[in-house]
Design a protein around this nucleic acid. Sequence first.
DNA 1: CTGAAAGCGCTAACAT
DNA 2: ATGTTAGCGCTTTCAG
Lengths: 333, 333
Amino acid sequence: MREVSRRAGVSLKTVSRVVNGAATVSPELSARVRAAIAELGYRPDVAASSLRRRDGRTRTIAAVLDDLANPFSSAVHRAVVDTARAQGVLVLAASSDEDTENEREAFTAFTARRVDGVVLMPTSADHGWVESERAAGTHVVMIDRPAVALDLDTVVSDNREGAARATAHLVRRGHRRIAFLGDLETVYTAGERLAGFREALAVARVPVDEAPVRMNLQDSDGAERAVVDLMSGREPPTAILASQNDITIGAIRALWKLRLQRDVALVGFDDIVLSDMLDPGVTVVAQDPAAIGSMAAERLLRRIAGDRSPARVHVVPTQLMPRGSGEIPAPGR
Amino acid sequence: MREVSRRAGVSLKTVSRVVNGAATVSPELSARVRAAIAELGYRPDVAASSLRRRDGRTRTIAAVLDDLANPFSSAVHRAVVDTARAQGVLVLAASSDEDTENEREAFTAFTARRVDGVVLMPTSADHGWVESERAAGTHVVMIDRPAVALDLDTVVSDNREGAARATAHLVRRGHRRIAFLGDLETVYTAGERLAGFREALAVARVPVDEAPVRMNLQDSDGAERAVVDLMSGREPPTAILASQNDITIGAIRALWKLRLQRDVALVGFDDIVLSDMLDPGVTVVAQDPAAIGSMAAERLLRRIAGDRSPARVHVVPTQLMPRGSGEIPAPGR
DNA sequence: CTGAAAGCGCTAACAT
DNA sequence: ATGTTAGCGCTTTCAG
């Protein structure tokens, strides 16, 4: 910048004004400065600028998601990046892998870079530590799961309703022994979906204790084993509700291997590529990760811009996509 | 930092030394400083630090990928992030959507933040402009596709060999009319895979002009239409080689809809979730996006650390995964 | 081993 | 409308 000012024969401040598009520069000087900038190939240093700026904004936010390679998280991430970019804001990202240590380490690394805010898909642990960061001026929006006892903007799917709708869908086809497959029970979404499942059973007057529930499934392999185990039990379920994409994939693998895919009904959470091409197609409760991501980014950017309104929980609707597996009737029906 | 120094009753510099783990601080002072840091909840400002540092490193890199929500790109991205994090380096990212404007805009935004380097999945356009950034000290590693006429580190799959192997696999089963489905012909990988396809045909003495080639397919819908069109032609192919994940998905949809999935052989590029569960399973040439991403990040970090060795092209092997669709023999065989 | 002063690239506050 | 000075939070240089 100094070089530019010398070359254009003006003061540093004038160059700054031109770079920042201040109106109070004469066209002539402005042109001279622009020419110097072009000749020198000068690029303003955003970091240095934000160091001195009154608001201290770095125009950078961060996203801490479960797994950047997972279809759900990566769709969320892309939406966050696109929404931020529209306002000239850049996005740093990291995966937590559902591990509190990773989560906190990533968060800390981001705040050390003075990001203006963070979109956080929180692990199940306590997030009291977020408060101190918020006090330091870093805005936070929770995504996919609310933070326990924290007054923060939050964007989630209608997990409970989605699961309840899927369950009612199965009950309507005569199923009473419906198995629920969930991941870590400490994960908020798993709990909500289980609650929705149970609510729907209660409404339908299906004894809840008849329903086999398998929680803490870690991945698709675990889910696959759980289904094989369930189906070889004394009273195997006639339908399955799988609470998440990896788990749905495991359930699919198990049913197909057991050649039960036409006999046992299946509804999964999260849409899965090609699941409509299977025979039968897999009925799912689809979430809208792009909507979740852009909504979260928008709230965050608004907060950064100074919005002081009370924190809100935004619920993004899910959609039941009947494709065959969820429409298999109970035996004898 | 100033507050910390006052509280600990030492100079600014001593605090700096403690924060940076310099050995030349007496244990006593060091302890006092640490206490003050804890009491004040002080967090060093990495950006301010890199502003003054001699090497000017921001310990931040960037990734410009085709589409952060695509399974291939997101797997690459995750590997880049994980590799960088192991060295305390953060990652900014953006999608180019195969658009040169987007690509350059993202790249420029990143260099304006003074990232130490960029992992770039280049669009097909000329990348001469990258040179000026490199001259300014930003390191660049190309990924998935080499830059035309640029002497840059590059990490790619063995596209040509992978396609040739897949083609030979089909020829071995008696196919002679094999269709090739590619995306934008300007995209490097599409060209390489087409070249591998043609090479393998030539080796097998299959007249290349018999092979229907459909390029410039934009997405799975386009691929689906192309296959429907091909199959309704006068001399429909007996086998299909699809050059990329979205295109493979389109081909799958078309064959299944036409109920030709057991009659027409199909090999796709890129692995696809659940493609092994279809009937028949879909044979693919699987790439290794995680290896590509971590290798690219490693080279980039090494360059940033000062490695001045000549640029290298690193080729990551692909793997043919026979699952059924690629093993369908030609009619009358 | 410790500290004082200078300055990284930029903008705020106040001149002029 | 333009310039001057100070200083963001930190590290460097150099002096003790």
